[in-house]
Amino acid sequence: MKWIGALLVILTCFFTGMDYSRRLAQRPKALRLWKNALLILEAEMVYSHATVQNACENIAKQIGDPLSGFFLSVSKRLQYEKTDLYLIWEEEVDQFWTRAALSKEDKEIIKQFGKTLGQHDIIQQKKYIQLAIVHLENKHKESIEMNQRYGKVSGSLGLLSGVFIALLLL
């Protein structure tokens, strides 16, 4: 009985560690995807003067999952709902973040960006998109560093801490 319990503790810790390392590895990819999405958004807005709704629809077509789902549902809701753009954006961001391997700070950047979306003239809008991209770029660099530093360690660290706790309890 004791041994089964110890094994369970070790396994839990091991998988927690693995999950953490997986998230660390996914974050740079997700951030890069967001950056691409904003670049497309900029092109849509500044050069083809598309509405936010059309721009989101086009991004959804061009970009991979899971981000395409996010932009598609923003676009759908803009089409059918009679509410503020920011409310829709905020709700969709919240929902997206429950599944994404991204941090709270990343979320804040995207939310802040949503506040400026469609509220300014072209030049200002372009600046805000650039600003968000710069922020994301910084986060992207940081996430790569984090991944290099902790990515490989965290799996084994999980296993070791599991063994440690199990030994203490035995």
Binding site: H49, V52, D84, G118, D121
Partner: peptide
Amino acid sequence: KYILNRISEHSIYRLEEEL
């Protein structure tokens, strides 16, 4: 503000000339 947003379909940058 809401009305202006509705008119521009949440995209005020498109109304530059109009404004």
